[in-house]
Structures are given as C-alpha cells and as structure tokens.
C-alpha cells in the first residue's frame, strides 16, 4: 500500500468518524452539568468514612485500590519489558568492570546550583508522597519527582555517582518490593477475615499526617515502586552512553 493511498483512505474514514462522533457528542449531557451519583456520594462520605481529606487519593488507594493494583502491575510489566529489550549485562561483576568514558565538564555554576536543587527536590518529593491523603499528591507523583531528582545527578556530569546509584541491585529489589508489598497489604486484610484491601489500620484524626489508615502506607509503597521503575528505565536507556561501549552481538 503506498503512502498516498493510505493517507487517502485515512482521510475518508477519519472524517466520517469525526462527523459521527460530533453528532453523538451533541447529545451528551451539556458540559458542566454532571449527573453521576458516585462522585457526589464519595465527596460527602470520604471525610467521615476514611478520615482522609483528598477524595481522589482516597478513591485511588482505598475505594478503587484493586484497580490501582492492576495499574501498578502494568507499570511493573512495562519496566520488565524495557529491561529485557535494552539491557544485556545482568550480572554485577561485569557491570562494575565497565569504565566510564564520558569525561566532559559542565560549567561550575550549574554544578554548584545543582546540589541544593537536588536536596530540595528530594525533600519535596517526600512531602508530596507522604501528604497524599491530605492535599494533592501521592505515591505516583512523588515517585516521578524523586526519580527526576536523581537524574539531576547525571545532568551535572557526575556520571560515576549516577551509575553507581542506579545500577545498584537495591533499585531492582526495591521495585519488586514496592509492587509486592502493595499486594501483601491487601493480603493482610484477608488474614484478619475482611475482604482484600480493606482499610485495616487505625484511621487517626482528620487532617493529621497519620490519618486515612492504609492510604498513606499504600501510597508509600507505590512511591517506592515508581521511583525504582523510572530509575531502571532511565538507566536501561543510558547504559550504553554512560559506559561508552557498544557490546558485540
């Protein structure tokens, strides 16, 4: 099939789709006129039922926790796929033998600024992760922030430290542990004779950091896993560039 023919077929089909979709969208309930019952119910009940003030995170890590477990395993599997496709040296011995060839230097001002920013980013990541049940935040966002903080180490040309941190076995272990402990928290509820992923911890005072029961704990597990996942993905891509050698196939 030539490119022009493909584009032509697409334009015919695409505009038919667009026209039909626009006709259908005209009959949807108007924008700003939401009628669904579930959101209202949760908005009213979440503070009394779970002592958590952020309804979105309460849904994510508690009411709909089973679904988030599935999402987390999608993440886990995707990272597994990236590592399988891109990594070749599995054992630690050869990994440590690799020399770092990249010796370019960045301007000193960037390096000086980088250290305090790295520090602030790490602290802020922990803040976002641990206050998920109170204010917007939670494990998913905190994981990305923490991973990007470690990326700053690579950016300021401290390649050796970056390689030593991210190629460490602890990153892989903590990714697996983060994914497993989410499921284990769910199983702990089963051991007490209540359904999977029931909120079993004490709920605490509303507005306190230690409130919401399971929500903060699950959010922390997710945070650990997302941090490790992003670090693994970044290192899988950068491994060749950092070590400066292309292995023979």
């Amino acid at each position: 099939m030539t490119e022009r023919l493909r584009a032509r077929i697409f334009f015919v089909a695409g505009f038919i789709f667009l026209a039909l979709y626009f006709c259908a969208a005209l009959n949807l309930p108007p924008w700003g006129d939401y009628r669904g019952p579930y959101g209202d119910f949760i908005s009213r009940m979440v503070v009394y039922q779970r002592h958590a003030t952020d309804a979105v995170n309460a849904i994510n890590y508690d009411y709909r926790g089973f679904d988030t477990l599935g999402e987390e395993f999608i993440l886990f599997t995707a990272v597994l796929g990236v590592m399988m496709l891109l990594r070749r040296r599995a054992d630690t011995a050869t990994r440590e033998a690799n020399k770092i060839k990249e010796t370019r230097k960045l301007s000193i001002s960037v390096q000086v600024v980088n250290f305090p920013v790295f520090f602030v980013t790490v602290v802020f990541g922990f803040y976002i992760g641990l206050h998920g049940q109170l204010t917007p935040g939670g494990g998913f966002q905190a994981g990305v922030i923490l991973a990007s903080a470690l990326l700053l180490v690579y950016i300021c040309e401290n390649t050796e430290a970056f390689q030593r941190i991210t190629s460490h076995r602890a990153v892989e272990v903590s990714e697996a542990l983060g994914a497993a402990s989410y499921a284990l928290i769910g199983l702990a509820a089963l051991c007490l004779g209540v359904p999977f992923l029931t909120n079993i911890l004490p709920l605490g005072t509303t507005g306190d950091v230690f409130s919401g029961g399971n929500i903060a704990l699950i959010s922390a597990c997710v945070g650990v896993e997302v941090t490790a996942a992003f670090l693994l993905v970044i290192y899988s891509y950068l491994e060749e560039i950092v070590t400066g050698e292309v292995p023979e196939e």
Binding site: G39, V56, N60, E71, L75, V79, L85, F140, G143
Partner: peptide
C-alpha cells in the same frame, strides 16, 4: 467536581510514560 473520573486519569498518566518507554 467528580472525583471518580479524576482518579481514573491520575494513574493512567504515570503508567502512560512507562508504556511509552516500552
């Protein structure tokens, strides 16, 4: 506003980045 649809979006955005990486 409805918190349920927001919870649907939230996880998907982060998972999207890793799926794009795959």
């Amino acid at each position: 506003v409805d918190p349920v649809v927001q919870a649907l979006m939230l996880t998907d955005i982060v998972v999207e980045a890793v799926v794009v990486a795959l």
